[in-house]
Amino acid sequence: MEESLYLLKKTINTYSDCCFLYCGFSQTEPKHSFGPAIRDQFLIHIILKGEGYYSIKNQKYFLKKGQGFVIPPNVSTFYQADEKNPWSYVWMGIDGKLVGDYLSRMGITNDRLSFDIQDLDSFKSLIFECFTYEKDTLTNELVLQKQVYKFLELLSKSAAIHRQEILTKKMNPYVGRTIEIIRQNAYKNISVASIADQLSINRSYLSRLFQQDIGCSIKEYINEIRITISCDLLSSTDYSITEISEKVGFANSQSFSKAFKLITGISPTIYRKKRVGLGRIRKEE
Rank of each mutant, 00 (worst) to 15 (best):
E220H: 15
T228Y: 15
H162C: 07
E224V: 01
L199C: 08
D213W: 01
I190E: 01
D197P: 01
N185S: 11
S191P: 00
S194N: 13
H162E: 11
I214T: 05
I229A: 09
L262M: 08
T237D: 02
I241Q: 01
G215L: 02
T178R: 00
L154Q: 03
A186C: 04
L154N: 14
N252I: 01
A160Y: 06
D232T: 07
K247N: 15
Q254A: 13
Y187R: 02
D197I: 06
L206N: 00
Y174A: 12
T269W: 06
Y271M: 03
Q147I: 08
T237M: 07
S253P: 01
R275A: 15
L262K: 15
R203D: 13
V148G: 09
L152D: 02
A196Y: 05
Q254W: 00
T228N: 14
G265D: 04
K150D: 11
E220L: 11
S240E: 06
Q184W: 01
K219G: 09
F250L: 07
K150E: 14
D238F: 12
H162I: 02
S194G: 05
S245L: 05
E165A: 12
F151G: 14
P268K: 05
Q254S: 10
I241A: 03
F210C: 02
K274D: 01
G265R: 03
F260C: 12
Q184M: 14
S245K: 01
F256Q: 00
C216F: 08
T264K: 12
Q198K: 11
E220T: 15
K273T: 09
S207W: 09
K157F: 06
V175P: 05
L206P: 00
Q184V: 06
L154I: 14
Y205R: 05
Q198S: 12
D213K: 13
K170F: 00
E224L: 02
A159R: 05
S255R: 08
Y174N: 14
V248W: 00
R275F: 12
F151Q: 10
S255N: 11
I179T: 07
K274N: 04
K273Y: 02
S200V: 09
G176P: 02
I229P: 00
E224I: 00
I270P: 00
K170C: 10
Y239Q: 10
N202S: 10
L154V: 10
D232P: 03
A193D: 15
D238L: 05
K169N: 07
Q164D: 15
A160G: 11
I182T: 00
I214F: 05
T228L: 12
S240W: 04
